[in-house]
Design a protein around this nucleic acid. Structure first.
Length: 505
RNA sequence: GGCGCUUUCGUCUAGCGGCUAGGACACAUGCCUCUCACGCAUGUAACACGGGUUCGAUUCCCGUAGGCGCUACCA
């Protein structure tokens, strides 16, 4: 069984946008598959027809495309183990439900939701299990002809798994080791509903994982309590020898306060919890996305990978390829991780610094256009190159730091602290000299200016840079003065210099 | 309530019986410097508590407390 080809899956429900925690689960599955030369399956678990949300499936697919996580087979990818949408696998599940029924490992129950509610109200800690099923309406407590009569007369029913009590069930978890739960605390889970002819998660999950030859189940910790049930199901089907290995990942927690990370936290603290912007078709609500907020997908993946895992070295910045090499599922942490979105922003900053200007330019160009600036791509790249190491986490933060490249200061004012401090008594005269010097240059390149200005500086002992900055920028921000002048060009540089001299004297 | 998982700086974490408990984010300071940054350096800051086991526990075991999850005809 160990020589089976590694096959893992990510199987979301199309009930809304893809949660960032789900993205991390998918990422870990992806890394695991890739490092073992295995396959990664994308399955849609839409067995709850009442919670289906149109557009969610497409949203999830687009999210992974943006992130750069590729599947080998599944919905929209094709493959030999389809269909990959559970709602299209009704007949398959029916067959396996019947198998369990015939073997006496499951039974039919007619109790209505109202009856169950009544029982729960009547008996505290009521659980549908070996100790209570005799008093319920099911094929174990009713006569055979009564059962068939009920079915024939159209009564809705569910199929429940018959749990044998008193047994210690072991789940071997790749992260947590041996987890033992006694079967007595498990209830007779509903496996199938006649109302929509669909199984519940538990049955569909086991059947699909088996049929799709899944070897490793890597999922969130919220599934740990039901893992013993799943083990029991594999056993009931006689599939224990090919049962997948399990790994239950720690959850992502709120950055502050209590509980797991939720959509509300993003709204409240101002960071996205979804990869892409999501427009809820029911409520009309719009939730921000990492893509639209200006995150680079590489940064998002890098950040997420380190929330619950690390390579055991001090390396934090790593490409997807490096992560594939370094990832170790057994080294995942066991406790939940607070979602530190501030560190997420730092990752984005690091990736911006690493990216070529040409890759960053299109996004900045959009922002320029939104501000009514039309520039050549060459200019946009130049500005991004000069300014990306400023204190920014996102390209969009560049604009307020960069406007002077495109818009000359309207006015100059001693109100500005930097101006007051740097435009001294001799500034006007010095800048006049500088302007004359620059005007004499035929070559206005950085190198040419630098040579000329530094020679003048050496001869006169003047320090022209800050007043020069006042003139070109209007305040204390911006790149190196030679670079800025070269970008603006001789004409504009002189124009700004002379205007400043005139206004500030 | 029951069951399970879990517990190292504010946060993410390294540590797998003996360490001045390491790194990163954030924060602070300094250096660099034509501004702001980048970069570099430094600093503040942690083993939840109580019992064991051991020559010796952050590390192993057991409790307690806290945190998290599950407890649906949702996944």
């Amino acid at each position: 069984m160990s020589e089976r080809k590694v096959r893992v899956r990510f199987a979301p429900s199309p009930t809304g946008a893809l949660h960032i925690g789900g993205v991390r689960t998918a990422l870990y599955n992806y890394l695991f598959a890739r490092q073992h030369g295995g396959e990664f399956i994308f399955r849609i678990e839409d067995t709850d027809s009442t919670r289906f949300v149109p557009g969610a499936e497409e949203y999830i697919i687009e999210s992974f495309k943006w992130l750069g996580i590729e599947f080998d087979e599944g919905v929209s990818y094709g493959g030999q183990h389809g269909p990959y949408r559970q709602s299209e696998r009704r007949d398959i599940y029916k067959k396996y439900v019947k198998q369990l029924l015939d073997a006496g490992k499951a039974y039919i129950a007619f109790d209505t939701p109202e009856e169950l509610d009544a029982k729960r109200a009547e008996i505290q800690n009521f659980q549908y299990d070996a100790s209570t099923r005799a008093m319920m309406r099911n094929s174990l407590s009713l006569a055979a002809d009564e059962v068939s009569a009920l079915i024939e007369s159209g009564h809705q029913y569910v199929v429940r798994f018959k749990i044998e009590p008193g047994e210690d069930v072991h789940v071997n978890d790749m992260i947590r080791g041996d987890v033992v739960i006694n079967s007595s605390i498990l209830d007779d889970k509903v496996l199938y509903k006649s109302a929509d002819e669909l199984p519940t998660y538990h049955l569909a999950n086991i059947v699909d994982d088996h049929l799709m030859e899944v070897t490793h189940v890597i999922r969130g910790e919220e599934w740990l309590p039901s893992a013993p049930l799943h083990v029991l199901l594999y056993r009931a089907f006689g599939w224990e020898d090919t049962m997948p290995s399990f790994a239950h990942l720690p959850l992502l927690l709120k950055p502050d306060g209590k509980g797991k990370l939720s959509k509300r936290d993003g709204d409240r603290l101002g960071f996205p919890v979804f990869p892409l912007e999501w427009h809820d078709p029911k409520s009309g609500e719009v939730s921000s996305g990492y893509r639209e907020s200006g995150y680079l997908p590489e940064a998002v993946l890098n950040f997420l990978a380190l929330l619950g895992w690390n390579p055991g070295t001090d390396q934090e910045i790593m490409s997807l390829e490096e992560m594939v090499k370094l990832f170790d599922i057994t080294k995942c942490s066991k406790a939940g991780a607070r979602f530190d979105y501030v560190k997420g922003m730092w990752f984005n900053k690091e990736y911006i610094l690493m990216k070529d200007n040409s890759e960053l330019a299109p996004e900045f160009d959009k922002i320029l256009r939104a501000n009514g600036i039309v520039a050549t791509m060459e200019q946009v790249e130049a500005v991004v190159g000069m300014m990306k190491m400023k204190k920014i986490n996102f390209i969009k933060e560049l604009w307020p730091l960069c406007d002077f490249f495109f818009i000359a200061p309207e006015t100059y004012s001693m109100e500005d602290k930097f101006v007051r401090k740097n435009w001294g008594e001799t500034a006007a005269a010095d800048m006049s000299e500088l302007a004359d010097l620059l005007e004499s240059l035929t070559d206005f390149s950085v190198a040419s200016q630098q040579t000329a200005v530094e020679k003048w500086v050496e001869e006169t002992g003047k320090k022209p840079w800050n007043p020069w900055r006042v003139a070109l920028v209007g305040t204390g921000k911006g790149p190196d003065m030679y670079e800025l002048s070269a970008f603006l060009g001789k004409e504009e540089t002189l124009r700004r210099l002379r205007k400043a001299i005139e206004i500030l004297k």
